[in-house]
Design a protein around this nucleic acid. Structure first.
Lengths: 260, 260
DNA sequence: GGTTTTTATCGTCAGGAAGACGACTATGAT
DNA sequence: ATCATAGTCGTCTTCCTGACGATAAAAACC
C-alpha cells in the first residue's frame, strides 16, 4: 500500500482467501512418495490432505510456500531466487499451478497457489502445528494411474478438496521435468552415486533403466555431475564413485523416458 | 458455499483481490507480438499493460481468462477442457503462473493468475470496455532480451505493474513449449502450409531454420500434420500443400531449437 | 579360502535422427 | 524467355541411443 493512493472500492471485486498448498515429493524405498497431513478441523476433518495454509498479509507467494515447507518438514529451501535447485540438503521449491474453482472449498471462495517441493529422503515427517499427523505415502496409493491400485488390497486414499488433482499435476511436473533438467538431483543427498541417481529416475518414472546406458548418459553430459572424490559402498557391490550435482540445470539432449 | 457449513472467520485470513492477466501472443509480419492495452485509470494511467481483470465471484480461473480474452480480442477458446489446442480459428489458452508479491499493486493486495493465449494473426485488435486502446507490440520492444533493444532507436515500452516479468515468462513458455508439442499450430489459421508453420517457429524463436530439414521433420512426425487437400500460392513461388493440425499434441522426438 | 551375488564401469555395434547441403519443381515477376 | 521465390525430395556425415557383452570390486555365503 502506498500512502496517498486510494484503495480499491471494496465493492468492486469479490474478496478471496489465498492459500498455498504443497506437493512435497521424495523417494523412499524405491517409490515416489508424497507428504500428506491429516486434517484436524472441518471440512474434511480426519481426511488426508496436502500440507498448506493461508498466505499472510505481507508475504509473497513463494515465501508463504517456503514457510509452510519449514513448518511441515523442517526443510529449508535451497536457493530461493534461483530458477533451478542445486545439491545441498535443502529442497527444491517451485510454483506449480493455481486452483480456484468456485466450489473447491465449501465454505468460501479460496484460491490455492500450489507449489512443488522435491526433497531427499528424510528421517521422519514431523507433524506441523495445525495437523494431527503427517506421513509419506506412495503416490500410487493416492492417485490410481499406474494400474497399481488394488495391489494387495490397498485402495487409494481419497484426499480432501481437489488435492488429488493437485498431486497428480505435481507428480506429472516432476516426471516430465527430470527429463530435461538436473532436477532429479534434488531427490539425492549432497553426495550421491550414479546408481542412486538412477534409482531416483526409476522410482519417479516407475520403469527400469539400463545401468550402463544411464551411466554413459549422466557422466557424458557436461556439467551434470562433478566428481566429489571418494567412493561409497552403501548399496553393496563394487564401490561407486561419489558425485555432486554440477552447475548445469538443463539437460541437452534430454534424458529419454522409455515408452510405456 | 454449502448451506449449513459455517464460513471461515473473516479475521482468520487477509482478503485478497484475484485477477487474471493475459499474455496473448500472435505472429505478425515475421515477429512475435503481444497484445497490450492502454490503462484508462490509475495506477499507471496511460501506461501500457497486459489485458486482464477481476475474477468474478462465481467464476473459475480459466473461465475468467476466457471471458477476458473474448472481451479484449473476440477470440473464442478452442477447446476449454482439452489440455492442448487443436487447429480451429479459436485460441489456445492455458494457465501460466500466479504473481502475488505484496507490493505489486500499490493500492491493495492483488494476486494475479496469468494465462497464456496463442492466437493466429487477427485483423485488428479491438479495444475492450475498460481500455482506451489496444495494439499488438513486438515482444522485443517490450522485453529487451534479444539484443534488439535500441534498434532504430526503439526504446522498450515499460509495462505497468510486473507485467514485463509476466510477459517474459509467457514468451519463454511459448518458446519452450513449441519444441515438444504441436502448439505452434495455434499460431496458424485452420489450414496452413509447411512454410507458414516454419515461419511461426522462426518468429517465435528468432532464428532461421533450414526449410528442407524442417519439412522432413514435420511431415515425418506421425499425427502432427494431416493433408487438407489442395494447395495455395499465397506466399509466392511454387504452390504449397495445405495441411491441418493432426491429433498429436506431443512431439517425440521434439523439434530442436538451434543453439544461440 | 573359494564361490556366488551384487553393483559399478568400460566397450562394441546397429539403427535412428538431425545438420549441411545438392538438385529439381512450379509458380509469379520482369 | 529469364529470373526470383518457395516448396519438395535425396544424400551424406555425425551424433545419440538402445541392446548387450565383458570386466572389476566389494559383500554374502558355503
Amino acid at each position: 500500500m502506498i500512502a496517498g493512493m486510494s484503495p480499491y472500492d471494496p465493492s468492486a471485486f469479490p474478496p478471496f482467501a489465498v492459500t498455498v498448498d504443497l506437493v512435497v515429493l521424495t523417494v523412499r524405498r524405491h517409490s515416489l512418495c508424497a507428504l500428506i497431513v491429516k486434517r484436524g478441523e472441518p471440512p474434511f476433518q480426519g481426511h488426508w490432505a496436502l500440507p498448506g495454509g493461508f498466505v499472510r498479509d505481507d508475504e509473497d507467494l513463494d515465501a508463504a510456500a517456503a514457510r509452510e515447507l519449514v513448518e511441515e518438514t523442517g526443510l529449508c529451501v535451497h536457493d530461493p531466487g534461483a530458477p533451478q535447485t542445486e545439491p545441498g540438503n535443502g529442497a527444491h521449491l517451485e510454483q506449480l499451478a493455481t486452483y480456484g474453482a468456485p466450489d473447491r472449498d465449501p465454505r468460501m471462495r479460496v484460491v490455492s497457489v500450489a507449489h512443488l517441493a522435491l526433497a531427499p529422503d528424510l528421517p521422519a515427517p514431523r507433524a506441523g502445528g495445525d495437523a494431527n499427523s503427517a506421513r509419506w505415502a506412495p503416490v500410487e496409493e493416492l492417485i490410481g494411474q499406474d494400474g497399481a491400485a488394488g495391489r494387495e488390497g490397498e485402495q487409494p486414499v481419497p484426499l480432501a478438496f481437489d488435492h488429488a488433482r493437485i498431486l497428480a499435476d505435481g507428480v506429472e511436473r516432476a516426471r516430465s521435468k527430470i527429463e530435461y533438467s538436473s532436477l532429479a538431483t534434488a531427490f539425492c543427498p549432497p553426495e550421491f552415486t550414479v546408481g542412486e541417481l538412477r534409482r531416483v529416475y526409476e522410482a519417479v518414472w516407475g520403469v527400469a533403466l539400463d545401468p550402463r546406458n544411464f551411466h554413459r548418459k549422466v557422466t557424458g553430459t557436461p556439467g551434470f555431475l562433478v566428481p566429489a572424490g571418494g567412493t561409497t559402498t552403501r548399496q553393496g557391490g563394487r564401490p561407486a564413485q561419489l558425485f555432486r550435482a554440477g552447475g548445469a540445470t538443463l539437460l541437452n539432449p534430454p534424458m529419454l523416458r522409455p515408452e510405456v
